[in-house]
């Protein structure tokens, strides 16, 4: 479904040009959950923004190709991008506090994709929005429909974000650190919600995180990035159980109390002290 080959992104407003992403490869099948993991500044967010066509003007894609549903994303015009965003590809972000517009009602934001991409009547839109709101676990959707973001908790807002991203039934949803800003218990709820939505709607999810534990619990495959480059990729279990690359090992050892910690790892740590 999605095929990224040799993607490179460069910031051209600094001298010398700064290479944010270099030679990135990724392929995804429909309904799959794939993770990208790396520390902040490793280029994972850049990659996801490129997938949405939302790169800043200063950032240019210098080489590579992105194919989505057999279409070349790089040759898309602004208009074609607009038709794609929210309909075929949607995105949720790290900060549920600020990612919703403070002066628009939850309902208005929930059904925005429908408003933009379908010719549905207002009533029908509302019905779908209410339905989606209960699907993402928001109680009393009728009441919430008229609420504003500041009246909701962080977890509820992220549910709203997920609902509004899925309401147009996209083939792919990019989740950029969707749980980072949340409490641990809420994190787990959101993760299981994402898994549930993935199974029910068949939406593929590109899950971006710096947290290996989160990635492990939700993804089937993972790509590890470091300084704009892929250092390792493969099925989650393989990569995490027997990391081939030094960086991946380091990332793994940075997790405290992890359940899958291996004795070999511990030995290494002691030796390096």
């Amino acid at each position: 479904m999605l095929e990224i080959q040799g993607l490179s992104i460069e910031f051209q407003d600094v001298n010398p040009p700064f290479l944010a992403v270099q030679d990135f490869f990724l392929s995804m099948n429909s309904g799959e959950i794939v993770g990208i993991v790396g520390e902040s500044g490793s280029g994972k967010t850049m990659t996801s923004l490129a997938l949405m066509g939302l790169l800043k003007r200063q950032a240019k894609i210098t080489s590579g190709s992105m194919m989505f549903l057999g279409e070349d994303l790089l040759s898309k015009s602004q208009k074609e991008w607009q038709a794609l965003r929210g309909k075929e590809i949607s995105m949720i972000f790290q900060e549920p506090m600020t990612s919703l517009n403070p002066v628009l009602t939850i309902g208005r934001q929930m059904e925005e994709s429908l408003r933009l991409h379908t010719k549905m009547e207002a009533k029908e839109r509302k019905k779908k929005a209410l339905d989606m709101m209960s699907q993402v676990g928001l109680a009393q959707p009728e009441k919430l429909y008229r609420c504003y973001p500041h009246q909701l908790s962080g977890g509820m807002r992220q549910r709203v974000m997920i609902g509004s991203a899925l309401i147009g039934n996209p083939k792919l949803m990019i989740a950029d650190e969707p749980t980072t800003a949340l409490d641990v218990t809420i994190q787990a709820q959101i993760l299981s919600l994402l898994k549930k939505m993935n199974q029910e709607h068949g939406t593929a999810i590109l899950f971006i995180s710096h947290d290996l534990r989160v990635i492990q619990s939700i993804c089937s495959r993972v790509v590890v990035m470091y300084q704009g480059k892929i250092v390792e990729s493969g099925p989650v279990q393989t990569v995490l159980r027997s990391p081939q690359q030094a960086y991946t090992k380091k990332l793994l050892s940075a997790i405290p109390n992890r359940a899958y910690s291996l004795r070999r790892d511990r030995k290494e740590r002691i030796e390096s002290c």
Partner: peptide, 8 residues
């Protein structure tokens, strides 16, 4: 996104 030097 990381800040770029030139901006400031």
């Amino acid at each position: 996104m990381r800040p770029k030097k030139g901006d400031f």
